[in-house]
């Protein structure tokens, strides 16, 4: 079993009518099966309202399934006794940096999580030191978070998660409000955590260029998983992705358009290098 596993996961939101009458059930996710291997980088794609965030909130038991089961490192999220262990295993970073910072000094914000689970003071500071170092924010540790840029705030939020020593980090559109530099910093930070410490990364994103860095991709539509595969497998199906209101990276789109016009190219080109090599031949060392 992978670190995150779901079988036939379903969730209903209740839409309340007036005076609690005519309450309506709205199915947000339906029949989701996923199995995420420890240490991998997973991307979840889907248009606004496709159920991605609902799925993400199941991974650390912020939502509990109406149907089916979600396991985090073998623990059923419905079992109440494990809830704090689960939240420690799977940390979450949300979209808006301003909504997830609680303290008035960066280092205290990072220490907030460990303090809450009763880590001894000396160890809290060790964890804070390490976490800030991991995300490259050590030199800002004494600052007030409102003096930071959006990308820096998100890295503080990630440090707060890292200080909990999680096995898995879930990024729910954590780069959506950032400028291109901030986006790159945040992405590089989590991929580095993945590479060096084997942290499993699950990222929900609308930026197709970020998806190309994942090992495996799930595509959601109307609460269901409609496509899954490696980025190359997913992005070689341009028309199908567009039918789900999604897109492919510009380079992939260009390669697809050229191929349609008869240029001899392989399917599913993802990067600039691949396209240049395909058009000009492999670079020969001189």
């Amino acid at each position: 079993m992978g670190i995150i596993k779901a079988i036939k996961l379903g969730f209903d939101y209740i839409k309340y009518g007036e005076d609690d009458k005519d309450n309506e059930k709205v199915r947000a996710i339906d029949g989701i099966d996923i199995d995420v291997e420890k240490g991998s980088v997973i991307a979840i794609l889907g248009h606004n309202g496709s159920g991605k965030s609902t799925l993400a909130k199941h991974i650390n038991a912020l939502l509990l399934p109406s149907e089916g089961t979600m396991w985090v490192d073998g623990m059923d999220t419905k079992g109440e006794e494990d809830i704090w262990k689960i939240r420690q295993k799977a940390g979450m970073v949300f979209q808006n940096p301003d909504n997830q910072i609680v303290a008035s000094v960066v280092e205290e914000d990072v220490g907030f999580g460990p303090e809450n689970i009763g880590v001894p003071t000396k160890e809290i500071w060790e964890r804070v030191d390490q976490a800030l170092e991991r995300v490259g924010m050590t030199k800002h540790r004494k600052k007030s978070p409102n003096r930071l840029s959006g990308g820096q705030k998100q890295r503080v939020a990630i440090a707060g998660v890292v200080a909990m020593r999680p096995d898995c980090i879930v990024l729910d559109e954590s780069t959506a409000m950032l400028d291109p530099n901030g986006r790159k910093d945040v992405l590089d930070t989590v991929l580095d955590l993945n590479r060096k410490e084997g942290v499993t990364v699950i990222m929900i994103t609308h930026y197709m260029e970020e998806v190309t860095r994942a090992d495996f991709v799930y595509v959601m539509d109307s609460g269901k998983i409609v496509m899954q595969g490696t980025p190359r497998e997913i992005f070689s199906q341009v028309e199908k992705l567009k039918s789900f209101h999604l897109d492919v990276p510009q380079i992939t789109e260009l390669a697809y358009e050229l191929k349609k016009d008869g240029v001899d190219l392989p399917d599913g080109i993802l990067t600039r290098d691949e396209l240049v090599s395909a058009l000009c031949g492999e670079r020969t060392e001189e």
Partner: peptide, 20 residues
């Protein structure tokens, strides 16, 4: 300046450099 050009710009420069 901490900005970038579109992906396409980089691609076109590389292709040109490689003789296309």
């Amino acid at each position: 300046m901490g900005l970038a050009a579109p992906q396409i710009t980089y691609l076109m420069h590389e292709l040109k450099e490689r003789g296309l």
